[in-house]
């Protein structure tokens, strides 16, 4: 499990670089490094389906983010209540980590999950669904309602993007008058 720790530390360093660097394009590229590291972590954790999906989704997200940041300079402002804002944020994160550390004792130990429901899936999955990939059988047979909801969310997101980006639309009467003049 040493490689897992190394990859996680690599991801944290990449995230710090992505947050703190000034240039937006470098920041986006650092996020890409974090995502590819996450894909390798999924592969080590024996989740090949999630690793494939994470890899391809990361590439597409990187292309979209680079599209948004090209040719756009950014004035950085650190004015305002710098000390107070940072202090409040760090306090929040400290409290969060403290409470999380207390709550983590109730979780099952790393590497020994409980698997009450999943044991049933693994035992009866082949005879009930006929699929040899259990993730596929869970997605599309046992928990297909989840996938239906996901399809709805994706549809809504596509409609939202198309509605935000489109040019034509109804204009107010005052704007029409200005155009006519």
């Amino acid at each position: 499990m040493v490689e897992l720790y190394i990859l996680l530390i690599f991801m944290i360093v990449g995230a710090i670089i992505a947050i703190e660097v000034k240039d937006l394009l470098s920041s986006v590229v650092a996020v890409g490094a974090v995502g590819l590291g996450l894909s390798i972590v999924f592969l080590i954790l024996k989740a090949p389906d999630v690793a494939i999906t994470q890899l391809v989704v990361e590439i597409l997200a990187l292309i979209i983010l680079i599209r948004a940041t090209l040719k756009k300079d950014l004035p950085f402002s650190t004015s305002g209540r710098w000390m107070l804002n940072t202090f409040i944020t760090v306090c929040f994160i400290g409290v969060f980590l403290f409470i999380a550390n207390k709550c983590l004792k109730d979780l099952p130990e790393f590497g020994y999950p409980i698997m009450r429901v999943a044991g049933n899936y693994l035992k009866n999955g082949l005879s009930q669904t006929g699929a040899t990939n259990f993730v596929s059988s869970v997605i599309l047979d046992y928990r297909a309602f989840d996938t239906l909801g996901e399809a709805t969310v994706l549809f809504t997101a596509v409609i939202g993007v198309l509605a935000i980006v489109r040019r034509v639309g109804r204009k107010k009467d005052s704007e029409k008058l200005e155009e006519e003049e």
Partner: peptide, 9 residues
């Protein structure tokens, strides 16, 4: 396999 399916969506 159950959290894998949730994470995939």
């Amino acid at each position: 396999p159950l959290p894998h399916a949730l994470v995939l969506t």
